[in-house]
Amino acid sequence: MSTVSDVRAGRMSVSITDGIATVEICNLAQRNALTKAMCLEIQELMPRLDADPDVAVVVLRGAGDTFCAGASISELSFVLLDQQPNGSLVDHLSGADAAIASLSKPTVALVDGACMGGGWQIASACDFIIANQRAVIGLTPAKIGIIYPRPGIERLVRLVGHANAKYILLTGKTFSATEARALGLVADVVPSESFDVQCQALVTSLRSRSHFSMHSMKRLVDLTDAAHPDINQEWADAWEAMPHSPDMEIGINAFLNREQPQFTWRPAG
């Protein structure tokens, strides 16, 4: 195991074991609320994990029994509306969101306990969210007189549709994990008594999948989301690369021989 950051109040903690990087939100005094410094740390950390050849999968979770209470209320202006010397305003929460979303490797948010406000935004920047059955999720900007950041609203609309997005945002209601799954806020809900075991099994299975397949499909899905102008060329390039990847032959032979495939493709660099 290697440690990238020390576990400190109001900081991000990272451990890397067997190809899995676990990023933990650590601010127990504020129910893991995100400060400006934590948002900046996420922005610095994620590119390093993406470039680390020892990391295959990135997991985001909260320390203790809370995922994240959102942006720190005491630092809200600095987190969302940090005024720069030139007069412009910087949204550091959305900067952290973008850093997570830009990872080329599979990312999973494991949500236990409360996941509120900006906590859901950074969780949803991962490829998908797995929630503990006891988790509660709420997007509450209307309760404190602010606007949810644009990347969070746009992703929310893509996931749940316009009407449900308005319902979630305008009411500021807190949803159970089961309700959140029905709305599309999380991908799956796992019983509390087996949460850690099932999540570990899921993450381990991701580590064993074809990295070529996962990296390629993740990028293509993201480009579809963004209606990218070069998506046709991206598809053509990915399709052309498929037979040249060692993973295709490895996967087919393993299937025919009823063996577990040992994929070898790794991203350049």
Rank of each mutant, 00 (worst) to 15 (best):
3 T>M: 13
6 D>A: 13
9 A>H: 15
9 A>Q: 14
13 S>D: 15
16 I>R: 12
16 I>S: 02
19 G>T: 00
24 E>S: 13
24 E>A: 12
25 I>K: 04
30 Q>Y: 15
35 T>C: 02
41 E>H: 09
42 I>E: 01
44 E>N: 15
46 M>H: 09
47 P>R: 10
50 D>A: 06
50 D>S: 03
54 D>L: 14
54 D>A: 09
55 V>W: 11
59 V>K: 08
61 R>Q: 12
63 A>F: 03
66 T>M: 12
68 C>K: 01
68 C>P: 04
74 S>N: 14
76 L>R: 13
80 L>Y: 13
82 D>T: 05
83 Q>Y: 06
83 Q>W: 13
91 D>N: 12
93 L>I: 07
96 A>W: 08
96 A>T: 00
100 I>F: 07
100 I>H: 06
102 S>N: 13
103 L>V: 06
104 S>F: 02
106 P>L: 02
106 P>N: 08
109 A>I: 07
113 G>M: 03
115 C>F: 05
116 M>V: 11
119 G>K: 07
122 I>S: 10
123 A>M: 11
127 D>M: 06
127 D>H: 05
128 F>G: 09
131 A>T: 04
132 N>E: 01
137 I>N: 01
139 L>Q: 04
141 P>T: 07
143 K>T: 15
143 K>S: 15
143 K>F: 03
146 I>N: 10
146 I>H: 06
147 I>S: 14
150 R>M: 15
152 G>M: 08
152 G>H: 07
155 R>F: 06
160 V>Q: 07
161 G>N: 11
165 A>Q: 09
166 K>C: 04
166 K>T: 11
168 I>E: 01
169 L>Q: 09
170 L>Q: 14
170 L>S: 00
172 G>C: 08
173 K>R: 12
174 T>P: 13
175 F>A: 03
175 F>H: 03
177 A>H: 00
180 A>R: 04
183 L>S: 04
189 V>T: 02
189 V>I: 05
193 E>D: 15
195 F>Q: 01
198 Q>N: 05
202 L>I: 09
202 L>G: 00
202 L>V: 01
207 R>M: 08
211 H>Y: 15
215 H>Y: 01
217 M>F: 15
218 K>F: 04
218 K>A: 04
219 R>C: 01
220 L>Y: 00
224 T>G: 13
225 D>A: 11
225 D>M: 05
227 A>C: 11
230 D>I: 01
231 I>R: 10
232 N>E: 15
232 N>T: 14
232 N>F: 14
232 N>P: 00
240 E>Y: 09
242 M>V: 08
242 M>W: 01
243 P>E: 08
244 H>K: 10
249 E>F: 05
250 I>C: 06
252 I>W: 02
254 A>Q: 07
256 L>H: 00
256 L>P: 02
257 N>A: 15
259 E>G: 09
259 E>T: 05
261 P>T: 01
268 A>G: 11
269 G>E: 05
